[in-house]
């Protein structure tokens, strides 16, 4: 017994060091598992508030590009509307038939240089934001809501090793999975594309709509390069349509059917 006490006394700093290291390691592992990073995240009121304040100072420097983006998006939407004028007029506008509800949010903390990038936005539970909602910008997809507090939320960026997004080739309906390898923030990788698919450099890749996160057909990017052998495609590089280093205002998508779909899927298990 005395020897144990002596041992602890002699190595007390080393033991404290070990305990702290193990604790830090556990926090890292826990934060890496999606849906469990509730404890250490930047969505709490102190960090969120600080980022919000600092963001409101620097916001003016990006107003010009932000306005340009809005104008371009408005033009695109007007053109799209013009193609469908008759349908819109005859279509009865009924909000209960709307499948996805969009909420505006602002990225107050952007990250794109790390292996696992997580963003912070200034909307939270108070604004109806919950886990597993898709986040898009005017140019393409950004990520998925991870943790929420009353005023803020964190977004699991598509530039994260735990982010797997269902993607589809726009011209041929072949489905693949989008995952990032961590090297360049401008490109991401597309996996599991069938060999039968006839892909070319420059083909557009959009969201597949096979999950409840994103509706079908949202822009992801274009094929930059790929290798192919007789069995499969390898190393398909996608040039992201979105500039992930310059994100301002984003839209959060709430799928109204999500509860019904989840209930159905749980029944099958």
């Amino acid at each position: 017994m005395q020897q144990i006490a002596f041992f602890i006394e002699k190595y007390k700093y080393f033991l404290l060091f070990l305990v702290l290291e193990i604790f830090a390691f556990l926090l890292t592992v826990q934060s890496n598992s999606y849906h469990k990073s509730q404890f250490i995240n930047s969505a709490n009121s102190i960090t969120g508030g600080l980022f919000n304040t600092s963001n409101s100072f620097f916001e003016y420097t990006s107003l010009k590009t932000e306005n340009q983006k809005l104008a371009i998006e408005n033009t695109a939407l007007r053109n799209a509307l013009d193609l469908k004028t008759e349908e819109v007029i005859t279509f009865e506008i009924d909000s209960t038939q709307q499948k996805n509800i969009y909420t505006t949010g602002k990225i107050i903390r952007n990250n794109y240089t790390k292996r696992n990038n997580i963003l912070t936005i200034n909307k939270g539970v108070r604004d109806g934001i919950t886990q597993d909602m898709g986040v898009i910008s005017s140019k393409g997809i950004v990520g998925v809501i991870n943790a929420t507090t009353s005023k803020y939320a964190t977004v699991l960026s598509i530039l994260n090793s735990h982010s797997k997004i269902n993607a589809r080739l726009k011209n041929s309906n072949y489905i693949g999975t989008l995952a990032w390898n961590g090297t360049d923030y401008k490109t991401t990788q597309l996996h599991d594309i069938q060999r039968q698919a006839n892909i070319k450099v420059g083909d557009t890749v959009v969201t597949g709509g096979k999950s409840t996160l994103f509706p079908q057909g949202l822009m992801i990017g274009t094929i930059l390069s790929f290798d192919s052998n007789s069995k499969k495609y390898e190393n398909i590089q996608i040039l992201l349509a979105n500039d992930m280093s310059n994100l301002g205002y984003v839209y959060i998508i709430k799928n109204r059917d999500i509860e019904e779909i989840q209930q159905l899927e749980n029944n099958d298990d």
Partner: peptide, 22 residues
């Protein structure tokens, strides 16, 4: 840990800081 909370990195900075402190 304070740096980790702000940058959403779990306990990476905490582990590294404790290590060089020791």
């Amino acid at each position: 840990l304070s740096i980790d909370i702000f940058s959403n990195s779990g306990g990476i900075n905490a582990a590294a800081a404790v290590c060089i402190a020791y």
